[in-house]
Amino acid sequence: MLKTETPAQNHAQLDQYPTVDLVNVFADDQINAVGAVRAAAPHIAAAVEAALPRMEGGGRLIYAGAGTSGRLGVLDSVELYPTFSWPHERAVALLAGGASAMYVAVEGAEDDAQQGAADVRSVNVGKDDVVLLIAASGATPYVLGALREARAAGALTIGFANNADAPVAAEAEIGIILDTGSEVISGSTRLKAGTSQKIALNTFSSALMVRLNKVYGNLMVDFKATNAKLVRRAVRLTIFATGADEAAARAMLEQCGFHVKVAIVALSKNVSVEQAKALLESARGSVRRALGA
């Protein structure tokens, strides 16, 4: 039996626990998700390094999964644009059962390997793309179909699973095993298995964006200020990075469309917006290199 399906022996009387104990058991078990990701860190790092040249070459991140795993892939994909200005068309999520499965479970969709392959073909996966295959069991037919089609197309494949020797990890070019063991509620991989997937995907994509110069120091400097909260954030980050006062920071941001990267370089180097953009372009988007630091 898969570890993720094995009943947890230490919680056989779960339904009789006092509510406060019930809550503590669920919370405490999540700690194992962090441990599983830490154990997989070398493989996640290898995935980042392998994905980097493909992203620099114009490739896309493509997520494929079913159920909870697929929804977590969707979540990671949609968060990349507001956080890092990563283009929508370069973060594609394939979910068994289609877009409606984000809200309502589509029974049986995960069992269709042919549909997984068809979905990969439908987005014209190519050699510059990186396909992330996510499955707690590691053997979901939809995900395996997507994996095999992606490999045939020459894409880099990265498999995430929560069971050792999982086909999704074994058949992908880079396999990431998140060994979270049995769940407090037997087989409910929306618990710590899902948490570990969320952490691993977040870690992978965030580290990749750092390598793509979307971050300066530990500051989020490449986002779209599309609402009042983000405008305030842009001003704060510009002040923090440059030491400029609020009026100067806001004035420069208004000149460059609230692009924090450009404002930092322009204020720090005392150059025009156009000159700052040119410096960033020559530095491949790195604020640090544009500043000569």
Rank of each mutant, 00 (worst) to 15 (best):
S282T: 09
I177D: 06
L94F: 09
F258R: 05
S206Y: 09
L230R: 04
K261D: 06
D15T: 14
A152P: 02
L133I: 12
F204H: 04
S188P: 02
A47F: 06
K269C: 09
V271F: 04
A278C: 08
G70K: 01
A45Q: 14
L191C: 04
N24H: 12
I158V: 15
A293T: 09
L267S: 08
D29V: 03
V131Q: 08
Q197N: 10
A293D: 11
D245I: 13
Q16G: 08
D21A: 12
Q255L: 12
P82C: 08
T242E: 15
I44L: 15
G97W: 00
D179S: 14
E49G: 11
H259G: 04
L212H: 06
A234L: 05
F223T: 00
V78A: 11
A228P: 04
A283N: 07
N162C: 15
A139R: 14
K229Q: 08
A33N: 05
Y63M: 06
E246C: 10
Y63C: 04
D15K: 13
N10F: 15
G57Y: 06
S282H: 13
V20K: 13
L219I: 06
G187T: 05
I185H: 13
R250V: 15
Y17F: 15
R71I: 08
M102C: 11
D29L: 02
G97K: 00
T189L: 07
E274C: 04
A96I: 04
A155W: 00
S188T: 11
A99P: 07
E254F: 12
A45V: 14
G97I: 00
E79L: 12
R250Y: 14
V168T: 09
V78T: 14
E49V: 13
A244F: 11
D129N: 06
R148Q: 10
T140M: 01
G243R: 14
I199T: 04
N32S: 11
F160S: 03
V273R: 04
P87Q: 05
G138P: 04
D28G: 14
R232H: 13
V210G: 09
R250S: 15
E171R: 02
D222S: 07
G285I: 05
L72V: 09
A169R: 00
D29F: 00
L22I: 10
R250H: 14
V92I: 15
L208D: 01
E246G: 15
S196W: 00
G70R: 03
A96M: 01
V123S: 09
G126Y: 08
A117H: 02
A251S: 15
W86N: 08
S188I: 06
D112K: 05
A50C: 13
Q115E: 07
G138M: 05
Q255E: 15
A146H: 03
L144Q: 00
Q9C: 11
S206C: 13
E171I: 03
V287H: 06
T68A: 12
T242R: 14
Q13G: 10
Q115N: 05
I31A: 15
